[in-house]
């Protein structure tokens, strides 16, 4: 396949963009399930807002991947016409939305990771990509602040909220190892000046997470426990298929119709 370096750079770039986009679409889709069902009206607004941001980010990343690919496809192709094993989002983001504590814990893990990742990506050599990331970064910072505030409130709120918040982190922990998964795609992008060096901020990210959990009077789960793997190469939980079935059914039922 990869007979020339040029092709492989292009392929890596598409794969890299799709990983970022898949994470955001799948998490955004989960988040949007809260719309109309939030614990309080203000939070209904905030959760819908984050879902909007995430799906919006995914959409522009997919559109850019299509542009790089240059085969006449668009953002919807990637969202609607791929199957489970072709999605490369982390399993962390496809897990069912759970209760509000679970949603918040996951959002905090995602936003804090993205916060560090975007600081590097917004300096990418590819100006179009960097510009997009820079724009999204502003929203990521808001998501981080919002989800961190709720981790504190729920961790240090009532006995029940603390229990739920702790359970959420305990359950999610084994899915966090993959945040720092690195393969040839990452290495290629990093070498091209268009990727984030994940290992460079791993300790800083862990410290932010630990500090937040500690301030929230929660205990930090064991970083050395078994960690799930395989997401980036298409391994998923069975939850993803059901989500995609719902998300894609209408579009796939009428593939020739114009829905834009």
């Amino acid at each position: 396949m990869n007979t020339t370096k040029e092709l492989s750079v292009k392929e890596s770039k598409i794969a890299y963009l799709l990983r970022l986009a898949d994470d955001r679409l799948i998490l955004g889709q989960r988040m949007s399930e809260w719309c109309g069902h939030g614990p309080v009206l203000e939070e209904d607004l905030a959760l819908a807002n984050m879902a909007l941001d995430l799906i919006g980010h995914a959409s522009s990343l997919y559109a850019y991947a299509a542009e790089v690919e240059d085969e006449g496809r668009d953002e919807d192709h990637f969202a609607y016409f791929r199957d489970d094993y072709e999605f490369t989002n982390l399993q962390l983001y496809e897990l069912p939305k759970g209760d509000f504590a679970f949603t918040i814990a996951r959002q905090f893990l995602f936003s804090s990771f993205s916060y560090f990742q975007y600081q590097q990506l917004k300096e990418a050599k590819d100006e179009q990509f960097a510009g997009m990331i820079d724009k999204h970064f502003k929203e990521i910072k808001y998501h981080l602040r919002h989800s961190r505030d709720w981790v504190l409130k729920l961790g240090d709120g009532t006995e029940e909220s603390k229990k739920r918040m702790q359970e959420a982190f305990d359950e999610l922990w084994m899915y966090t190892g993959e945040l720092f998964y690195i393969d040839a795609v990452d290495e290629m992008m990093l070498a091209e000046g268009n990727g984030a060096d994940l290992l460079s901020f791993k300790d800083e990210w862990k410290k932010l997470v630990e500090d937040t959990l500690t301030e929230a009077t929660l205990s930090v789960p064991d970083w050395d426990q078994f960690m799930m793997r395989g997401s980036r190469t298409g391994m998923h939980t069975e939850h993803l298929g059901h989500m995609l079935a719902q998300m894609q059914f209408l579009r796939r039922s009428h593939p020739d119709a114009d829905w834009k």
Binding site: G36, D44, I55, R251, K260
Partner: peptide, 24 residues
């Protein structure tokens, strides 16, 4: 969750979010 394009998903989500705002 079933909107047939990303654009329509965003538009619908924004609209429903607005309704929450109106309620507020």
């Amino acid at each position: 969750s079933r909107a047939p394009s990303l654009k329509r998903k965003l538009v619908l989500l924004a609209k429903v979010q607005d309704e929450a705002g109106h309620g507020l």
